[in-house]
Design a protein around this nucleic acid. Structure first.
Lengths: 190, 190
DNA sequence: ACCTGAACACCGTTCAAGT
DNA sequence: ACCTGAACACCGTTCAAGT
C-alpha cells in the first residue's frame, strides 16, 4: 500500500514563508521546513530539487498575493494618476506586511536563478497586471514606464525594510514625494 | 615571540569580495575566505565576529568605491540635471561591474544588521556625497529628492542584475527613460 | 599576540531500505 | 508512491593548546 502524501506544495509554501518572516531568509532551510510540515529532511527532495526552490516558492506565493492586491484596484478609479498611486501604495503595504517575501520578489540571483529558469506563474501574472495598468496611462510605450515605476517602488520598499533610511526625515513623506514626482512625470504628457 | 599578523582587514575584504563576485554571496563563508587568505577558519574570529561581518566588509568596500566614483564627478559639470544623470549612470556602471557587492549596498537585513548597527564609514561617506549633489539641484528639501533618485537607481540596477527585465524591450532605453523622467521632474520647478 | 587542532551542533544532499 | 535512517561532505563557532 503506497504511503499517502503528507507533504503538499501548499504546505511547503506556507511553512517556508512563515519561517522567512519569523526568522529570516537564512532560516528557511530544508531541515526547518521539513520539521514544520512534520517530515524528515530527505523527504523534501521528493518535492523540491534544492533549498533555493523553497525561496522560489515563497517568491511565487508573494507575487500571487501582490497581484491579487493590485488587480483588486482595477475598478477603484478611472484616473490614471490615481491608479498608479494606488498600485505603488499597495506595493508598499505588501512590503510592510511581508518584508522578507517581498525582498525575494525580484531577487532572481539570490534564488539560485542564474538566468535560465522560467518566470514563476505568480510573477508572470503580476507583470501582466502591472503592465496593463500602466498601459492605460501612457499608451505609447508602457514597458519603460512600468519598469521605472516598479524599479522605484521596489527600490524604495527594499531600502526601507532594510533600514537604509536612517538620516531622519519622514519616510512616509519621502515615499509620497517620490510617488507624486514619478506619477506626475509619467502622466504629464500625451 | 608573538606571531606576526597574517590576516589584515584589507586582505579579508579583498578575498570576500572576490569570492562574492566569482561564486556568489552564499559562497562567502568563513572557511572559503580563510582558505584564500591562507589561514585556518578559526583564525578569522580574531578579526570578525560572525560570517555576516564578511558581507559587511564587502558592502563597506563597495560603498567607498562607489563614493569615489560619484565624488569624482563633482567638477565635471555645473548643470544640476547633468550631474544627477552622471551620478545615476555611475551607479549603474558600478552595479554592472560589481553586481554582488552592489546588491549588498543597502541590504541591511541580509547582512544580519537588525537595525541597531551603526552605518559603515563607506555608507556614511556615500550618503553625504549623494545628498550634497542633490542639494545643489533642489535646495529646498534634498532628502526626499535624494531618496527618490537613490531608490529608483538601486531598484533598477538590482532588478537588472537579478534578471528581472525579461519581457524584451531595450533595458538601456528603459534606464535612460526612467532617468530622464526622474531628473526632469526633480529639476523642473523652483 | 596570533594561529591551530579538536570538537560540537548543524546543514544540504544522496541513496538504499522500508511500508 | 512516499517516507526513513544512515551516511557523506561541509559549515559556523568555541576553546584549550601551541609558538
Amino acid at each position: 500500500m503506497p504511503a499517502p502524501q503528507r507533504v503538499t506544495r501548499a504546505a511547503l509554501t506556507t511553512a517556508a514563508r512563515a519561517i522567512a518572516e519569523d526568522e529570516g531568509i537564512d532560516a528557511v532551510t530544508i531541515s526547518a521546513v521539513a520539521a514544520v510540515v512534520g517530515v524528515r529532511p530527505p523527504s523534501l527532495y521528493k518535492h523540491v530539487g534544492h533549498r533555493h526552490d523553497l525561496l522560489r516558492l515563497i517568491a511565487d506565493d508573494a507575487a500571487r498575493e501582490l497581484d491579487e492586491d493590485v488587480a483588486a484596484l482595477a475598478g477603484s478609479t478611472t484616473d490614471p494618476a490615481a491608479m498608479l498611486t494606488a498600485i505603488a501604495r499597495a506595493f508598499r503595504a505588501f512590503s510592510a506586511r511581508s518584508p522578507r517575501a517581498s525582498s525575494l520578489l525580484f531577487a532572481g540571483a539570490a534564488l539560485g536563478t542564474e538566468g535560465a529558469e522560467p518566470q514563476s506563474e505568480g510573477m508572470v501574472a503580476l507583470t501582466r497586471t502591472l503592465l496593463s495598468a500602466v498601459q492605460a496611462t501612457t499608451p505609447s510605450d508602457p514597458l519603460p514606464a512600468a519598469r521605472t515605476l516598479t524599479a522605484w517602488a521596489h527600490g524604495f520598499c527594499t531600502m526601507e525594510q532594510a533600514g537604509a533610511f536612517r538620516l531622519g526625515g519622514d519616510v512616509d513623506e519621502a515615499f509620497e514625494f517620490g510617488l507624486a514626482t514619478l506619477v506626475g512625470a509619467l502622466t504629464a504628457h500625451r
